[in-house]
Amino acid sequence: MHKYILKRLLMLIPVLIGVTFIIFTLSYITPGCPATMTLGETAPAEAIEALRQEWGLDDPFIIRFVRYVADAARLNLGETYATRRPVMEEILTRFPATLQLAVMGLFISVLLGIPLGVISATKQYSLFDNLATIFGLIFVSIPNFWLGMMLVVFFSVNLGWLPPSGFETPAQWILPAFTLGTGQMAVVMRMSRSSMLEVIRQDYIRTARAKGQKESVVVWNHALRNALIPVVTAVGLTFGFLLGGAVLTETIFSINGIGRFMVQSINSRDNPVINGGVLFLALSFSVVNLGVDILYAYLDPRIKSQYK
């Protein structure tokens, strides 16, 4: 098992370097001189030139890239143009809100999606199954930024039940979490349904029934434990969508997270923040996927025993 985790960790390194390469290349091709952006158009030319020298902006691409990777490895993502504060610091103060939002979205998608998918599969072609399938398609298709706004219009403005913005109190959590979670809930539900349909036809399910096992145990223990294996992979991808979707959801609900910070920086062309944010979220996503891979091995003894 340790071998497996170690192997996964090692495989993470080239991916992270690759991601960093993409982000760096994008910042490299972005028009506009960072030194000018930092000091402002009106700054004296010598000051700008001095800062260019300090940051080594005239060095060749590859040297700048290596420096970028080395900085990133030391958790240094540069400074914001606007405040000249370290981007990492700004991101870390906002990360808890983003993480909380994404985790709540994950809870909604997993805790609702998996049971709904399982029930749908065990009652294939029933009214419940048909409705679940149709609503699943609808929820996958609704853009979450629009869903968020409509929820605000309905629940905050019309009914006055829930606050339209902020993320401090539990009442403020509900709308953003559902905005972010419903689409992925539908994804998880569809995935669970099809995986369950596959498993429920297997011979070992018949064996469990032939033992005299209760149908509920057959479904929720024997079948689900097998059906979850592919679903876990989907949930890993779901977390990526949730991190990405947080950008939009935070904007709608004025949540002070990384996503809203990035969107604000788009308007002020503060590219170090955008790139730093994307890099940071991509790294978080990779770490989550590493966790998913380990969980996967835990769920599927066939993988575990390969690395004994």
Binding site: P14, V15, L16, I22, F241, G244, I274, L281
Partner: peptide, 22 residues
Amino acid sequence: RIIDIMLAIPNILLAVAIAAAL
């Protein structure tokens, strides 16, 4: 490997980064 790397960046964030650069 390249695809692995691209999939490590959530789709919408990749689009944001590219659009912000271009």
